[in-house]
Structure formats: structure tokens, C-alpha cells
Design a protein around this nucleic acid. Structure first.
Lengths: 208, 208
DNA sequence: GTCTATAAATAGATAGAC
DNA sequence: GTCTATCTATTTATAGAC
């Protein structure tokens, strides 16, 4: 997208950054399959074609790799998705946009998301705190837009917090089954979930 | 409930069975907090007041303890909850009963459920296969009752499988937040979710 | 059924050459 | 930036006494 096939030589910094991302991506895949604590540094190193000790040039500890994976599924969606809630439009329309953005992000970061949900207990307390903070903030923003829709009369649910839990759990569960159930396309699920969540569950009649 | 305060002496077998359950319960708590692979046998032993080696009198391997935890949140709900789907009544009424049974079971087995969702990668392939089978069977039964309600005209959703994923993810997400959000009682959530799921999302007008 | 003692394997991390 | 070599700690599991 940003760079075509052209052989633009990469700077040393750019190559190092790419290797870092390569390590994070490969680790996420392996952690998702076998569990973070069951995976050794040597196994991660094999996956990117270097020796175990060389990983410590890129990350000071194994846990820092896990932390990097977790950031891609907490800080990243907060930064990329939540702005749609600040765009102009009704609560129903803005929440529908968030549902779409959220599912598309989960689709792009599917393995990372599984790791982020399963391996929180292996983070250091400080990192755990930060990751939990991102997640709580995201859920609060969902609850707030549900509450706004209740005040405007678009949503007919009785409890904003309970509905927000329902919405978040439905959305996040997506990464657990979409990869195996290829009966529906991504866009089928996206529009199907906008309907189930915003129109049916919350009761919005108009999504514009 | 079954035995009052009376000092009925327990048989040797009964005491051994209770110690097994004690180990499983204590392990579930520790695994949920710190992650299965980060917990040593010595730590489990400490929690029940014995030495690490003594655990091997009750379980042949650490993984067997995890397997026992996982069974309480897959085989047990299949055996205890799914019969309500075979009781007389409409699909909407039967699904409403399953929602209630499911949330009450999750409330009773909350820590075990978190472990069962996070630590599947640490099971042996054979045990993993069995646990996955129980979960798939449960989800299939949910899908089937949704499909039955679509055929009877009670449910107005367009896709039974997608709706079933939504229902299961909403329900199972409960164990992730209920312990921290004590604003609502269990019965508030149970009836709130029956409404959100069966009436609102699926469109049933009558739950009798 | 629980203990002490220990075997055997593997892990994360570091030192220092190239 | 990656390598070889290795340290140190820890783990699961077993042997055999009580």
C-alpha cells in the first residue's frame, strides 16, 4: 500500500524496527498455539531464523515480547477505533461504526487478540496494569455511547452497563470462532453483528 | 444441604475424593490468578497444606489437575444445563431456561471457567480434543434451539449459527466481569440477559 | 497418604567474540 | 546484529522410608 515493489533501500533503523515486528508477529502465532509459558526463547528464535541469545538485542526479556503483543490488541484499537465515537452522528450510527471498526481490527489481529485474552497473567504487574487500563477505557467508551443512545431515546435497553458488557463480549468473542467458521465472509459478520447488536439488541430503528 | 452439621465419619474413599476436589479447587484459583504454567506443584501443595511430592498420590501429573478443572466447565455444564433444552416448551422458553442455568453455573464455577478459557493450550492433545468436543457439542445444541425457534417463527434473526455464536459469547463473557462489577445481583444479570438475548436480540415475544 | 531427598531436564538470561 | 558457550535457577516427577 504505502510502498510498491520498488527496491527502496531501508535504513538501519527501519530494518531493526521490521525485525522487532517480525519477532512480535511470529511470537503471537506461537503463543496462541502453545501458550506463552510453554514456549522457549529458542523456539521464537527458530521461527525468525536467529539464535535465542540474539533476541535479547531486540527485547530485554521474554515478557517484553508478550507485552508488545498485548499492546497491539489494547492500545492499538483504542487509538484506531475509538475516534469513530467522536465523529458527528447519532449514538446508533456511531456505535455501528465502532462495531465495524472493531471486528475489522480483530480480523487483522486475530492471533494477537487470542494471546491478549489468554496470557494476561504472565505480564509483570506494571504491564498488566497498563493493559487492563486500556481495556477498561475502551469498555467505558462503549458504555458511554450506549448511555447516550438511551438518553436520546434511540436505544431501548434498561441498563447501559449491562448492555455494554453484552456488546463487548459479543464483539471480542469473534476472534475465537471466525478463523474456523469460514461459512460467512468478514462483511457478512460485520453487517450481521451491526444488525444483532445495534438494531435488534439495543433497539435502534435508524442507523444513519 | 445433603449432610447437616452431624459428625458422620467419612470413609477412606470419601476422604480421598474430598482431597482430590480440594486440590482441584485450590489449583483453579491459583491457575486463574497466575497462569497454569507459571504455577509449580509446590505452590499447589502449599495451598492444601501438603508437600509437592504428595500431590502425585492424587494425580499422576500436573496436567491432570488442569484437565480436571477443564472438565468442570465443559462436561459438567453439558450434563447439568443441556437437559433443559429437552424439556417440554417452546424454543424461546427452553432457551430462556438455558440462559438462566448457564449463568448460574458460571457463577458457581467462575474461577474454573476462566482457567478453562485461558489454558487450553497446556492440555495434552488428547485431553484438548475431548474438552473441545464438549464445547462444540454445547454450542451445537444452542444453535439447534435457535434454528428451531426460527422454524417456529418465534425468533426473527436471519442466521442461526451467527446468532448462536453471539449468544454463547455473551453468556461466557459473564465470568470475566461479574466478580468485579458487584453493582448488579446475579438475578439482575440473569433476567437482564434473558431479556437482551431471547426477547430483544432473537425477537421472541413470548417466553412461557 | 505424606514425607525427605534427589534425579533429569529445561528455562531465561548473560559474557564476550566476530 | 548475530553468534557460541555457559551460568544459574527452577521445574516436573520419581524412589523409597514412615
Amino acid at each position: 500500500m504505502s510502498t510498491p515493489e520498488a527496491a527502496v533501500p531501508l535504513s538501519r533503523q527501519a530494518r531493526t524496527r521490521l525485525r522487532r515486528e517480525e519477532i512480535v508477529t511470529a511470537s503471537a502465532r506461537i503463543f496462541a498455539d502453545r501458550g506463552y509459558a510453554n514456549v522457549g526463547m529458542r523456539e521464537i528464535a527458530d521461527a525468525v531464523g536467529i539464535r535465542g541469545a540474539s533476541l535479547y538485542h531486540h527485547f530485554p526479556a521474554k515478557e517484553e515480547i508478550l507485552y508488545a503483543v498485548c499492546l497491539t490488541v489494547t492500545r492499538e484499537p483504542a487509538e484506531e477505533n475509538l475516534p469513530v465515537l467522536d465523529a458527528p452522528g447519532t449514538p446508533a450510527g456511531r456505535l455501528a461504526m465502532l462495531v465495524r471498526a472493531h471486528l475489522r481490527h480483530l480480523n487483522r489481529r486475530q492471533v494477537e487478540h487470542l494471546v491478549g485474552r489468554h496470557e494476561l497473567a504472565s505480564l509483570t504487574p506494571g504491564h498488566r496494569e497498563e493493559i487492563d487500563g486500556h481495556r477498561r477505557y475502551y469498555q467505558r467508551r462503549v458504555r458511554d455511547v450506549v448511555a447516550a443512545g438511551m438518553r436520546s431515546g434511540e436505544f431501548t435497553v434498561p441498563d447501559a452497563q449491562l448492555a455494554a458488557f453484552a456488546v463487548c463480549d459479543m464483539l471480542n468473542g469473534f476472534s475465537g470462532w471466525f478463523a474456523e467458521d469460514r461459512r460467512l465472509t468478514l462483511e457478512d459478520v460485520v453487517e450481521g453483528y451491526v444488525d444483532l447488536i445495534v438494531r435488534r439488541m439495543l433497539g435502534a430503528l435508524d442507523l444513519t
